[in-house]
Design a protein around this nucleic acid. Structure first.
Lengths: 107, 107
DNA sequence: TGGCGATTTGGCTAAAATGCCAAATGACCA
DNA sequence: TGGTCATTTGGCATTTTAGCCAAATCGCCA
């Protein structure tokens, strides 16, 4: 694999890696539904330490998946590109397909 | 986050995590193009140890993204659901959007 | 200005992911 | 059957991630 190809797949992988955590996917899902949420709202929904949620948000931000906007002392996050939601349909198909294959092993 | 929600996002995250590595994305891309490839072909394209490639393929297989088929002494891998390729369009948009934002910082 | 609430950052430990080598397994052919 | 090629598995060192606490920032209002 040449250097350019490597760089291309590195960049792509960074996006997937950023989505590859249940808490971060939950955040993406929430933002897709509600448009925007502040850190404290997300923290309450998730039920983890706020510093943990803040770090997850930083991962998403650094990957370019979300953007942040300060409003007074609060910081609101929103999806930068709504298309990331399209991922979920296919992911659900994979999960369904997995479940079906599991079932067939049992039958 | 209740237990059921947690499980749902765990399952989703597993798929993204499996795609979250440049070598594995390269494999997915190749399989999307060529339909199927054996381990030795992929190993040569990637230029890593065959055991490393085999382990990456195992990650994709366990996530349900690829399936394997033995043909004699070789093992061919293929995408289980072609829709995963749709991911790439949006990922490219995010990358383009990131590049644009970077550019604007410089200007 | 002092203090409070919201958020981020630093630091630390435990867990998971990577990638190589070496060894085991499996299929095939002489 | 012995040998060889393709693949997987085990083991190990190194790096990266995750999540908590404590401390530092930042904005705002009395």
């Amino acid at each position: 694999m040449d250097e350019k190809t490597q760089a291309k797949f590195d960049a792509r992988a960074r996006i997937f890696k950023a989505m590859g955590h249940p808490t971060r996917l939950f955040i993406v899902d929430q933002l897709a539904r509600d448009g925007q949420r502040c850190v404290c709202e997300l923290t309450e929904m998730i039920g983890a330490d706020m510093s943990t949620v803040s770090k997850h948000l930083a991962v998403l931000r650094e990957a370019g998946i979300v953007r942040d906007e300060k409003k007074g002392s609060q910081v609101y996050y929103a999806l930068r590109l709504p298309c990331v939601v399209n991922f979920f349909d296919c992911v659900e198909s994979v999960i369904k397909c997995n479940a079906k294959a599991q079932q067939e092993l049992i039958d």
